[in-house]
């Protein structure tokens, strides 16, 4: 009986994981197409990184706090961020949680404990360390995750954050999403060492997973989460996968990349996990078809609806610089509007 229940939950968990992957991929495709049609200004696709992100998400609790970066759409979707939140951000319309102030891909979803995305890479890492300090100080029952690409491992912020988190023995996972490329720079020109191995130099635990496998990423993320939750200190976890899209819609990877993983390729995580989940009996062709069709329908419907929402009112430009608007900004507002 217990076994049957477990089997049932396992299946449901995997279907949900697969669903998030397909929804994320469908949203990526839609936004890229819309960008080419001139309906969206810019975008950094998460394509190729879905499985690793979802594996991490499966290991986390609702209350855990995330300082994510600009390529975490699958992670956000799996943790329950409504796709309207993401599309409104990309459109920069008046329903966007940040009032259209950031360029696309710089998401915020405070309700699902996602903090705000920044452009300067790795600057979220010291923030996550501070938040983890507060978790420990206030004896909160949660952990903190900071995600970033492998290019971030070269920055002073990466070093500062890992070192401080280690010294203070904080409940934090540094989640490195190694897609092999920092815009045009391949990982072998970024660093001489496997990123997860750098953990040793800081005296913390280093782990790595096959980021193309939801199950493997989940297995390792679970180990990381257990380590951190039990008070044993930070973990640096690296997942490896392929950046299937460009760095951003403003970039042409054919200029520097000869081997680009295309959708449907043997290295595409959708292909890999779909096959595996079918073999394990979690998915059937029928369920796959239904999930794919449903994702397209939802994405089209939500996108069309969000696209119709107007821009934020001009006066919002002058708000939220401070709690109270100072005289100089009031004057500038009057002058410009």
């Amino acid at each position: 009986m217990t076994e049957m229940v477990n089997e049932q939950t396992e299946r449901e968990r995997h279907i949900r994981a697969y669903g998030a992957m397909i929804l994320s991929r469908t949203l990526d495709r839609k936004i890229i197409t819309a960008q080419r049609q001139g309906r969206v200004g810019f975008y950094t696709p998460s394509m190729g990184q879905e499985a690793g992100q979802i594996g991490l998400s499966m290991a986390l609790d609702k209350d855990d706090l995330l300082f994510q970066y600009y390529r975490d759409v699958a992670l956000m979707i799996h943790r329950g961020v409504p796709i309207e939140t993401l599309i409104n951000q990309v459109m920069g319309n008046k329903e966007d949680l940040a009032k259209g102030r950031q360029m696309p891909s710089h998401f915020l979803a405070e309700e699902q404990n996602f903090m705000s995305v920044q452009s300067p890479v790795a600057t979220n890492l010291p923030l996550a360390v501070g938040a983890a300090y507060a978790v420990k100080y206030r004896k909160e029952d949660r952990i903190v995750v900071a995600s970033f690409g492998e290019g971030s491992s070269s920055t002073p912020d990466f070093h500062a954050a890992l070192n401080m988190a280690a010294v203070w023995n904080l409940p934090i996972i540094f989640f490195c999403e190694n897609n092999g490329w920092a815009i045009s720079l391949p990982v072998e020109k970024q660093t001489k060492v496997d990123i997860w191995k750098k953990a040793e130099a800081y005296g913390i635990k280093g782990l790595h997973a096959d980021g193309n496998s939801i199950d493997d990423s989940y297995r390792v993320a679970k180990e990381a989460v257990e380590h951190v939750r039990s008070g044993k200190g930070p973990v640096l976890m690296e997942v490896r996968f392929f950046r299937m899209g460009p760095h951003s819609t403003s970039d042409d990877p054919t200029k520097y990349q000869t081997d680009i993983v295309k959708e449907g390729d043997e290295r595409d995580p959708v292909v890999i996990n779909e096959r595996l989940f079918k073999e394990k009996g979690y998915l059937t062709d029928e369920v796959i078809e239904r999930i794919k069709a449903e994702s397209i329908r939802i994405v089209n419907e939500k996108f069309d609806a969000c696209e119709k929402i107007e821009a934020p009112a001009p006066e919002t430009m002058f708000q939220d610089v401070y709690e109270k608007m100072p005289w100089n900004i009031s004057e500038e507002m009057e002058e410009i509007l």
Binding site: L65, F67, M115, T123, L125, P126, L127, A128, V129, G130, A131, A132, Y133, A134, V135, Y137, R138, P156, D157, A160, A161, N163, M164, V167
Partner: peptide, 21 residues
């Protein structure tokens, strides 16, 4: 008493302020 890293001091302070301190 923090490690000797100004960007870490400031960055960590921002994260602390985000999470209730």
């Amino acid at each position: 008493d923090t490690p000797l890293v100004e960007l870490g001091i400031v960055g960590a302070a921002i994260g602390m302020a985000i999470n209730g301190l």
